[in-house]
Every structure is written in C-alpha cells, then in structure tokens.
Computed example of a mutant assay.
Amino acid sequence: MLAYRMRHRIQFQRRVQTQDPNTGEIIVSWETVLFSGRLDVPAEVLTGPGRELIAADAQQAETTARINCRWFPVDRLELYTWRILWDGRIFNITSAETDRTARQEWRLRCSDGLTDGQ
C-alpha cells in the first residue's frame, strides 16, 4: 500500500435502529464509526463509469467506485451493512476484499445513486 494514494477522506457509517417509546415505531438512523477518535479515514477513491437505467418509470443513474483504505478489525459481513460518505455522496458497500495477508488494506467495491445508502 502506498501512503501517497490515500489522499481522500471518507467516513464509515453503520445503521442504528431505535424504537420510539411512544409509538413503538422502529426508527432507522446512521451513526459515524470512530477510528482512534477520528471521524474520517484516509482512503483512495477511484470512481468508474456510471450507468443509467430505468427504475420506477424514471431514468436513474448509478456510479460505481473502488475504495481502498487501511485494514481495521471488523467482520466482513458486518461491513456489508455499513455505508461510506465521501465528497457529499453516499456509497453502499457491495464487495469487501482484503490483501493477501488480510491485515494491510480493505478493497471495497461500492455503488451510489439508486438507494442513497438506504
């Protein structure tokens, strides 16, 4: 991993569900994950070509991205439920891979545009 490539700052968020005590309704919100007391994480963000498709009788755009960041201890399945904020955009994590040693970096494939991180 080359440190000079980590020129972007991203934030990881995880879904939090709480129950309204008055109505019993489940309220979904997102909380930012802290890493060593920091909100943002250095990363390399590589956006690729987008695609357009028809969904709900309207033309929608979707962008894909590869995001590489330093490895941190988290279960891979839990990582799929998180989302990433970068440059005012919300990315859903669609794939999470590690390097050969599984201790140096996360290689995340992400998409945005259709679900807005929901």
Rank of each mutant, 00 (worst) to 15 (best):
E25Y: 09
S36V: 06
D87K: 12
E52K: 12
R38F: 08
N92A: 11
G37L: 09
W82C: 08
R9M: 13
L79V: 04
A102T: 11
W106I: 08
I67H: 04
A55D: 14
V33M: 13
R15N: 06
L77M: 15
L46E: 11
N92T: 09
W30Q: 08
E25P: 05
S95N: 00
W71P: 02
A43L: 00
S36W: 10
T63G: 01
I93K: 10
Q59C: 03
G50K: 03
Q13H: 06
D40I: 06
A56M: 09
L39H: 10
W71G: 05
N68R: 15
L53E: 04
R89W: 07
E52S: 13
E105H: 07
T101D: 14
L108S: 01
T64Q: 12
L108F: 08
W30A: 04
Q13C: 05
F91Q: 02
C110E: 05
S29Q: 13
R103Y: 02
L46F: 00
V33T: 02
V45G: 00
C110L: 04
R7K: 13
R66L: 07
P21H: 09
R83A: 06
R9L: 12
Q17L: 12
F12R: 06
I93D: 04
C110Y: 03
T63Q: 10
I27N: 09
R70V: 06
L39V: 06
E97H: 09
Q59V: 06
C110P: 01
T47M: 15
Q59T: 08
W106G: 06
C110T: 04
R107P: 03
I26H: 02
I27L: 15
Q13A: 09
L46D: 10
D87Q: 15
L39C: 02
Y80K: 12
R15V: 08
C69A: 04
S95L: 10
E52F: 05
R51Y: 07
D99S: 14
A96M: 07
D87G: 02
V28I: 14
R70Y: 07
T101Q: 15
R100V: 08
P42L: 10
N22Y: 14
H8Q: 14
E44I: 02
T81S: 14
D75Q: 12
L85Y: 01
E78V: 12
F35K: 08
L53A: 05
R100K: 13
Q19G: 03
D75S: 15
V28C: 07
N68V: 14
W86P: 01
G24T: 07
Q104S: 14
P21E: 11
N22P: 00
W71F: 15
L34F: 09
E62N: 00
I26Y: 03
R70F: 11
A55R: 15
I93N: 01
A43V: 02
D75A: 14
R83C: 02
P21G: 07
R51W: 05
Q60D: 00
L46G: 08
G37M: 11
R89L: 14
W86I: 00
I93Y: 01
Q104I: 10
R7N: 07
N92G: 01
P49Q: 15
V16Q: 14
R109F: 04
V74Q: 10
A43R: 11
V16T: 11
D20W: 10
F91S: 03
R76T: 15
L79P: 02
L39W: 03
R51S: 13
I90E: 06
A58G: 09
E44D: 06
R100I: 11
